Amino acid sequence: MSDELNPPASGVRLPWERVPAGLRRQVADFLGGRVVEAVTQTGGFSPAAAVRLRLDDGRRAFVKACGAVPNPRSIEIYRAEVEIAGALPERVPAPKLLASFDTGDWVALVFEDVAGRHPAMPWRDDELRRVLDAVDELSTALTPAPITARTFADMHEESFTGWRRLLDEDTTGLDPWALRNLDALAELEEGWAAAAEGDSLVHADLRADNVLLTDDRVYVVDWPWASVGAPWIDLVCMLPSVRMQGGPPPQELFDDKDPAVTAVLAALTGYFVRQGRQPDPPGLPTVRAFQRAQGVAALDWLRFRTGWN
């Protein structure tokens, strides 16, 4: 696939040295050692530090740190992750949150280090099967939701209005099928919140860059969007990115004919399509290209599911 259809899931990371010295000292004091190496991890979009730290005694930890500048929303997302990651039960295959620090202007999360790697891109069949099996096991383990969290519908009620907003916006360059069916897509999108109801805790942001593979386990990282909804939400949210990153068409991996799935997919697709048409948010120069590419894959899947001309 071209770079336009398969942009990397990475942004502009902040070097560890640019995290405020006082916050770096708090992290080192908690870990009880001197940091001798900080290796930036490139996956993900937030304008933050994401580093694997090695201490002078050989111990390791993974640390994320974000400031309120340049994107004030990012620090709120990190605060949400503190709440969710700290509450996840032991059985969830996620790195353990060891500590967090909040100075008001900066938030840092300290996790156990997982010596894993992201899936190879384009997707390999064996690794994709491992991840899909893990998603299925995760859904089973998190139904009913073991912690209190916002519902998926409540968390995305303002975001999942893409088709309805496009009714009143400039649609120049919009996909011809989407333009031809825009009224019907907006109507289908209206029912997404009821369709998403359920009692499962879902990650809600599954992509290859939020998965780590070790020899014997699949770890799921970055949980700030975790919420309560239908057990299939993670698959619906993940499969457009799988397709854009070289995987099979979503309908070959998930063929549930439930109209509720189609309604949620319609809302997700509208979100990707409309967001991909917006200016870059502060500090996130690569996220729109990724959303556009997800929108192309999601739209193909939605066209297949609706059967509309």
Rank of each mutant, 00 (worst) to 15 (best):
D29M: 06
Y78V: 00
R129S: 15
Y271I: 02
I77G: 05
L14A: 06
L55H: 08
L31M: 09
P285L: 13
L14E: 05
A9L: 02
A195L: 10
L179V: 03
R54I: 11
D136I: 02
S159L: 12
D57S: 14
Y78N: 05
P250W: 15
A115K: 07
A28G: 05
V107D: 06
A149W: 01
E112G: 15
E76W: 00
A153P: 04
A61N: 09
D3Q: 10
F304V: 13
N181G: 03
R13G: 05
W308I: 03
L284W: 08
P8C: 05
T214S: 14
D300K: 09
D125G: 13
W225I: 00
W232I: 08
R13S: 09
L268G: 06
A266E: 03
G247F: 07
G116Q: 11
A9N: 06
P282H: 04
F254E: 01
K257N: 09
L14K: 11
D113E: 14
L53G: 11
P248R: 13
Q294I: 00
R129M: 04
T161Y: 03
L138S: 12
R18Q: 15
G86R: 03
A49T: 13
A99Y: 01
V264H: 05
E76Y: 01
R243W: 13
D29A: 10
A50C: 12
L142S: 04
L98M: 15
V69A: 09
L213P: 15
E252S: 14
A145P: 01
A184P: 00
R124I: 01
S227E: 06
R130H: 08
Q294N: 15
R25E: 15
D56H: 11
P146L: 04
P146I: 07
A61E: 11
T140M: 05
A85S: 15
R91T: 02
G33Q: 09
T262M: 14
L299M: 11
G32D: 06
N181K: 13
Q41G: 02
L206I: 15
T172S: 12
D126W: 12
L299W: 06
E252L: 14
L167E: 13
R91C: 00
M155E: 03
W225L: 11
D125M: 07
G32Y: 12
T103H: 08
E112L: 04
D136E: 14
T262D: 05
S2H: 13
P8K: 07
A184Y: 01
A298H: 11
L253W: 10
L109P: 04
P70D: 06
L188C: 04
R79C: 08
A28L: 06
L302M: 10
P224H: 01
S2Y: 07
R305N: 10
G191C: 07
L253S: 05
V273I: 15
A178F: 04
E187M: 04
L88A: 02
P279C: 11
G229H: 02
K96V: 13
R207N: 12
V69P: 03
T103E: 12
L88W: 00
A120N: 02
K96L: 08
A193R: 15
E187Y: 00
V264K: 02
P279V: 04
P70A: 06
P281H: 10
P47F: 07
V69E: 13
P47C: 08
T262R: 15
C237I: 04
G44L: 01
P248M: 09
L132N: 09
A297M: 10
V135D: 02
L98P: 07
P95D: 09
E252M: 12
P144W: 01
P95L: 06
G32C: 03
G33T: 10
T306W: 01
L132K: 09
